[in-house]
Design a protein around this nucleic acid. Sequence first.
DNA 1: GGAAACCAACCGACGCGTCGGTTGGTTTTG
DNA 2: CAAAACCAACCGACGCGTCGGTTGGTTTCC
Lengths: 207, 207
Amino acid sequence: MTTQQPRAQERRHRILDAALRTFSRRGYRDTSVDEIAEGSRTSKGGVYFHFPNKEAIFLALLNRSTAHLLERIETAMAAQEDPIAKADAALLTVLRTFANHRALARLFMLEALGAGRDFHQRMSEIRSEFAAIIQRQLDDAVRQGILQPLDTEVAGRAWFGALAEITTNWVFSGQPERLEDAFTALRPLLMRSVGLTSNSHLEIRQR
Amino acid sequence: MTTQQPRAQERRHRILDAALRTFSRRGYRDTSVDEIAEGSRTSKGGVYFHFPNKEAIFLALLNRSTAHLLERIETAMAAQEDPIAKADAALLTVLRTFANHRALARLFMLEALGAGRDFHQRMSEIRSEFAAIIQRQLDDAVRQGILQPLDTEVAGRAWFGALAEITTNWVFSGQPERLEDAFTALRPLLMRSVGLTSNSHLEIRQR
DNA sequence: GGAAACCAACCGACGCGTCGGTTGGTTTTG
DNA sequence: CAAAACCAACCGACGCGTCGGTTGGTTTCC
């Protein structure tokens, strides 16, 4: 293997970056591979050297983005002790990431769902993955006696769903201007929903 | 518009019914007009007599379905006195309708997003419309002193988002088997989220 | 009979994926 | 060490199927 890989690696990244830009601006179906090639200062042939087909580009992008987001979530959660604080940190991380990368938010909230049958399976997994992160923390909280027992699976999904709806609406309409603002209103709702009075347990933390 | 013949009206309905079936089974983009024509025992030309283009078919379908669902919600809400009960009835109506018409759920939760840019606007409106219905009831509840003041807009969206997530997951995975079952777990969460203890206010009502 | 409703056949654009060919760096060899 | 051989990476024109939409003629209904 004649080591020419760094250049190729970088090209591959460029392709995925261009794909994110274009998919999130024009949607999966309306994006042509030619556009991605142009956006990544490559050629169609170059794109097809790195990916077998258009679908694979999208899937790779989805996986890369998911992995990146999960990583950030892990880090943020690791900085917290309390399971509720961990769950809270996870939500906040998602919100902040999307707030700073609207294209990413578009991708996850709109385009990925609309990209067609073949991606539904993967999207279902990803959504469940995020909900499961919440669920695990709630389970811990119940185990530690912080929460009364409850259906944590539904609660995890409900929390995620609430967050997703706020985010989707922001993607659609740009409201509220600062996405994080919505969270200050959402947080007490979520806390109360699992039986925590606003100030009983969770102290609002740094930043 | 020179009085539509009853036969033509019926044909138009058949087209929309076929469109619902096909769009929800194969998605907007993957559905060809030929398929809709075939599914409605018409011809392509016949379809194009009733609708100017494919987009209009989808939009008409979306609007018809939305109107129908809103109507059911209105009816269900009218049977309740209490604003919280009204909100609850609205959610339950949505859930039941989707539970009985999975194709409709697919359409709203998945395919509508994949139909392209032009539909995002309309979908945003529809989502906001549903959230606003909840919001109005919460506002009433606050006004009547049933609830402590809270950000009802966020709460309305959060409620809707939680419901949507549960439903979307059901569309994806078929879990839980009976969609209504999820609501029995979700309801107390929602109630608590706005500061109602499970049994303080709302009595579980008939059916 | 004539307008409304319907139809089969047709058209043209578009986009995915392919494929023959190029490039520029790396390894081999005399 | 330099020429020859090699190869991963890259390029872009084009074939081909698909599909939205059109058209000109036919049937149905008043």
